[in-house]
Design a protein around this nucleic acid. Sequence first.
DNA 1: GATGAATGAGTCTTCATTCAT
DNA 2: AATGAATGAAGACTCATTCAT
Lengths: 186, 186, 186, 186
Amino acid sequence: MKQEITKHSVKLFQEKGFSETSIQDIVDSLGVTKGTFYYYFKSKEQLLMDIHLRYIDELLDFQKEIIENEQTCRDKVVKIVGLIIGDIKSQRANGRVYFREMRNLKADNAEIIKAKRSEFREKLERIIVEGMESGEFRHNLNAKMITLAILGVTNWTYQWMDPSGDVTVEEVAEMFADFVLHGIHV
Amino acid sequence: MKQEITKHSVKLFQEKGFSETSIQDIVDSLGVTKGTFYYYFKSKEQLLMDIHLRYIDELLDFQKEIIENEQTCRDKVVKIVGLIIGDIKSQRANGRVYFREMRNLKADNAEIIKAKRSEFREKLERIIVEGMESGEFRHNLNAKMITLAILGVTNWTYQWMDPSGDVTVEEVAEMFADFVLHGIHV
Amino acid sequence: MKQEITKHSVKLFQEKGFSETSIQDIVDSLGVTKGTFYYYFKSKEQLLMDIHLRYIDELLDFQKEIIENEQTCRDKVVKIVGLIIGDIKSQRANGRVYFREMRNLKADNAEIIKAKRSEFREKLERIIVEGMESGEFRHNLNAKMITLAILGVTNWTYQWMDPSGDVTVEEVAEMFADFVLHGIHV
Amino acid sequence: MKQEITKHSVKLFQEKGFSETSIQDIVDSLGVTKGTFYYYFKSKEQLLMDIHLRYIDELLDFQKEIIENEQTCRDKVVKIVGLIIGDIKSQRANGRVYFREMRNLKADNAEIIKAKRSEFREKLERIIVEGMESGEFRHNLNAKMITLAILGVTNWTYQWMDPSGDVTVEEVAEMFADFVLHGIHV
DNA sequence: GATGAATGAGTCTTCATTCAT
DNA sequence: AATGAATGAAGACTCATTCAT
């Protein structure tokens, strides 16, 4: 039931927004009563926190796997770009909630998520640094800024991508990885 | 007074979010009463619409200027990247509201803004296409996707950039323009 | 309107208890809507605090007057006993709320009321001490405890007294003053 | 288990109030589940009724004993004052609940408790009458009122007495018995 | 132009209680 | 004897909006 509530909530949050979705909306979509919701969740924020945690934890796990398994920095970056964009297929709603609704977490919870987001960012940054040192990447990059640029490319995807559109998620991932590596200039 | 209300609202919306900011909050911050607000604005949404319009119209104006004045596609792209990122200095709050709160516009208003956003995107896309045709940019790019990648780089900026931070807006603009042009690979 | 809300609330709180009276009950009894209540009061607790303040402040005022105007300690005690009991006539509901519902104030507000209650108690205690020193009262009393005993006699009144009963408030005041002075023993 | 539930409930009711204590609070403090509570008690009110009954029945028993064993009316009154105040040591929480929460009993149950309270009061009143007739007490007392005054002295104790304070329960009982007998006047 | 009183629908949350297992 | 899932009614509080003045 907890799973069920989460699933329906993610769907609704993604469609209408967290603040705009009422507990009533959620339980109505499940055919249960408000009491049931509060049997499983301490508060609406707790539910949002659960959604955030589940998403970022999974992302961190996959990232770790990539870092361990890929050899070159280039491949690591490519795979991480693919990870975030690819996630859209199975986790689209989840991702959209994650990228939009963090503001609705209270200070203490927001802090926890922020820390995990930073961890993800820093791990990517470290790859950039390594790639610069090993000569794979240009040596004059500002790793921190470049990391944010790459994350912009991938994360912004959630604003517009429609997995049922005319370009597949895999194609986008490939194009964006290429863009990140070589830019647009001849 | 209308100016005043808008200015204070943008500040509050950016800090706490649109849904989380009440009319009471707005008028309190101005030292007037709710009646005053409704004398100048038909509704809360109308105010949000005003903010959106003002922002995107300004962006479109500047974009037009750039397209007319710059010669090469390269320079046009660089300037547009700089435009969006640079705006953060004077318009940070406005930009953040623009990038986050469109969901709170009702269908008809959202449509209008979406059209203008598309216009901006399409004009950038056209530059990419021209650059590909003229040989300035790689010929095998998917212009539509690349445009979205570039907008990801710039628009995501609003999530993290702190104009008072250790990197200036100009430096970021330069780095990001370079990133867009050449990527990270050697 | 604020007066009106307070008046009706006191009546309901006294009849059914604070926790057992809903805002809905209050506004229904006035024929207005919930919004109106919250236009005048920040919260239900704030209303309870108002009631407490009004009551204890009036009590303190009257006590001060008595202390200034009466000559002997005996008369001061008699008048103060009469004050608390007499208040029942005009303020019965108010008094019952005051003596029963303080627990529903939050820590900070409760502290304020407690301080004022203490002030009242201490002023009475001081009269007892003076009476002991001047020889009016027995010299071997524990002033602090005796004060609490006297307050027990008067404050408990609210539990049972019915101003429309067969004994008038004035008669009770006289009997209780006599009891306090001479006890029951021959 | 029933004992256990009652014990923990009394403690919680005294600390936070009856309405403010949830069944969940009670079972949490015992480490069992709500079902268990309802296996032993028909309702929350039933539990409150049990607490009231246990307290007043014990009081009535002790009172009966005192009346049978003490010779003079004076001694009877002194012992009864001591009974109520003394109870505070072992029964403080119970007493506080008894003196504060009767309002939460429904009409029928409240009636039963009221009858027993009246019984206690009337028995004390009868002692006062006897003492007046025998010449032990002043002949011009209003027995009914005086009884309420005495109960005020004793019952109010529960509002402020702290058994771990600097005055012992026994000392208070002695002082208050003396106060009841002789008042404060020289 | 601006105020302030009032509305009413809606929000999150709590809780005593039930009941199949 | 005990559990745990579910209910549904009620509670305090918020807020965009209206309107007579």
